[in-house]
């Protein structure tokens, strides 16, 4: 069986966080779908809270610490990405955006991404499509059609949980299908020369 890696980024700040709960549900469902498709899933979870200082340091100094560099590499080398942010003041959280800002240009291009978000009420759910979706569109990643929003009410009551799980399964199936039909991801080498020096000299 071939293997594919899914990086799971959760921007939740509290512990336990509902963003992490949603991220775990999405990751587990994606793993099950991949297994069903004959692919061995490898799930790598990243809680941005643990790297908050590193993220600010990287913004200020321009380079990632050794430990945080490995976190960035986990995302850029993954075959698929589950990205979940809490919705703060009508959009993704600042920490979540700062993390995305630090991913090297082009490093998400062509990568399937499942977007998820959490918020206090369902009234924030459109932030998925007016904030997270355009953000990842800019990175030229392939944002799968179903995004999953979970409000407080989605975590209680059999019917609500059932409805959330249905959305989770649909999104996970879409992500797994996109990941499974692609060749394994090849990480971008920032030191690779893309043009010969003769072409550079010729102004190409």
């Amino acid at each position: 069986m071939s293997e594919r890696t899914i990086a799971v980024v959760s921007g939740g700040l509290r512990q336990p966080s509902s963003s992490r709960l949603l991220a775990d549900k999405l990751a587990a469902a994606t793993g099950e779908e991949l297994t069903r498709l004959g692919v061995t899933p490898k799930i790598e979870v990243i809680e941005l809270r643990h790297h908050a200082h590193d993220i600010v340091d990287n913004l200020l100094t321009g380079f990632p610490s050794t430990a945080f560099g490995k976190v960035v590499e986990t995302v850029t080398a993954a075959d698929g990405l589950v990205a979940v942010s809490p919705i703060f003041t009508a959009s993704y959280s600042g920490l979540f955006k700062s993390f995305v800002d630090l991913l090297p240009d082009g490093s998400l291009a062509g990568k399937p991404v499942l977007i998820g978000a959490t918020g206090g009420t369902a009234r924030h759910s459109l932030a998925l499509d007016h904030a997270l979706r355009p953000l990842f569109a800019y990175t030229r990643s392939v944002v799968i059609p179903t995004g999953v929003f979970a409000a407080s009410e989605d975590w209680g009551g059999d019917e609500a949980v059932e409805r959330l799980d249905r959305r989770v399964r649909r999104a996970a199936a879409e992500l797994a299908a996109e990941v499974a039909r692609r060749d394994p991801a090849v990480p971008l080498d920032p030191f690779a020369l893309r043009t010969s020096f003769e072409d550079l000299l010729a102004g190409d």
Binding site: V56, D57, L59, L60, T61
Partner: peptide
């Protein structure tokens, strides 16, 4: 680099 990482980091 000021106001960012600690000097030790």
């Amino acid at each position: 680099y000021g106001h960012g990482p600690s000097m030790e980091d």
